[in-house]
């Protein structure tokens, strides 16, 4: 394999990894606090893409404004899902919460099929993202570059919130020990809502960038990216924001490289991520950067 094609694949891998990372962070934050796999996260990602799609199509907003609208609305939907479906089950057995999460996910998918229709829709790619940059023979779509920049901006924002603000301190406290945090005067419900809002907003960013990358959307588009982002979160160590980031990039690059180096295995691409998951769970269940967390009884 020549250097050009190696870097070509690497750039594709990094851009895919960045999208996985954006989705994985939402999974990881919610799991860190509630010990709940938010199955609906992949469908929030789908909703983010659809909101931006309709924003650009019906209200003819510029792309950046529809991205912002999409972030705000999905953040709101995320809070709504938590209040409506997860909050009543906070003290129920974990299996009930898990089934409810799967139920929410299927509800959103089927509602999407009914409301948006099952036919894939072409997603408009703004002109500045449609150019091709050539650096020493490596051809990169300008979207690849910009999506990394956008991802980086939101990640800096996220790290600032989590590690430099009072809210972030509260989030970390609740994730370490919810009961003690409550006793210390932290409004746990508010923190959980904020967590859902941030996670969902990041998923919306991921959804819009994803939709521009593969310029089409459909109501079931969230399933596989959602599952893989969850795997990325587990790989990096679930509950850790940095881990989700790392896991996302590793998974994205590994997946692209697998196809690049072994094209005969390209059909197994979707299975590959699950294989990584099962291996990591067997060898190091806490993930690369994770700390041992006890499951709630």
């Amino acid at each position: 394999m020549s250097w050009e094609s190696f870097f070509q694949n690497l750039s594709n891998g990094i851009s895919l990894g960045g999208l996985y990372a954006l989705i994985a962070i939402g999974y990881s934050m919610v799991y860190g606090i509630l010990r709940l796999i938010n199955f609906a996260h992949g469908d929030i990602f789908m909703l983010g893409a659809y909101i931006a799609f309709y924003g650009m199509l019906i209200f003819s907003l510029p792309w950046w404004l529809s991205l912002i609208v999409s972030i705000i609305l999905t953040a709101f939907i995320g809070i709504l899902i938590d209040k409506g479906a997860y909050k009543p089950l906070r003290n129920a057995p974990r299996i009930s919460a898990l089934i409810t999460a799967i139920g929410v996910s299927f509800f959103l998918e089927n509602l999407g099929l009914v409301v948006f229709g099952g036919r894939p829709k072409g997603f408009y790619r703004p002109h500045i993202f449609d150019e091709i940059i050539t650096i020493k023979g490596v051809r990169i779509l300008s979207l690849t570059f910009y999506s990394l920049v956008i991802t980086a901006i939101f990640l800096v924002l996220l790290f600032y919130i989590v590690y430099r603000t009072k809210t972030g301190l509260g989030m970390r406290a609740v994730s370490t020990d919810m009961e003690t945090a409550r006793l210390m005067g932290i409004d746990v419900d508010k923190i959980i809502s904020i967590t859902f809002a941030i996670g969902s907003g990041l998923a919306a960013v991921g959804g819009v960038l994803w939709a521009m990358k593969y310029p089409q959307i459909n109501p079931l588009m969230g399933i596989f990216p959602g599952l893989k982002a969850f795997i990325a979160a587990v790989l990096g160590g679930i509950g850790s924001v940095g881990g989700a980031l790392l896991g996302g990039f590793i998974l994205g690059i590994a997946e692209i490289m697998l196809v690049a180096f072994m094209p005969q295995l390209s059909g197994y691409r979707d299975a590959f991520a699950f294989l990584i998951l099962i291996l990591i769970l067997l060898v190091k269940p806490t993930g690369l950067l994770g700390v041992e967390v006890k499951e709630k009884a």
Binding site: I95, L98, F274, E295
Partner: peptide
Amino acid sequence: TLRLGGDYLAIATLGFGEIIVV
């Protein structure tokens, strides 16, 4: 997979189901 706890088992078996389809 059965050595894993609750949620991880759910995801691992879900993964198995998807791998089988692939």
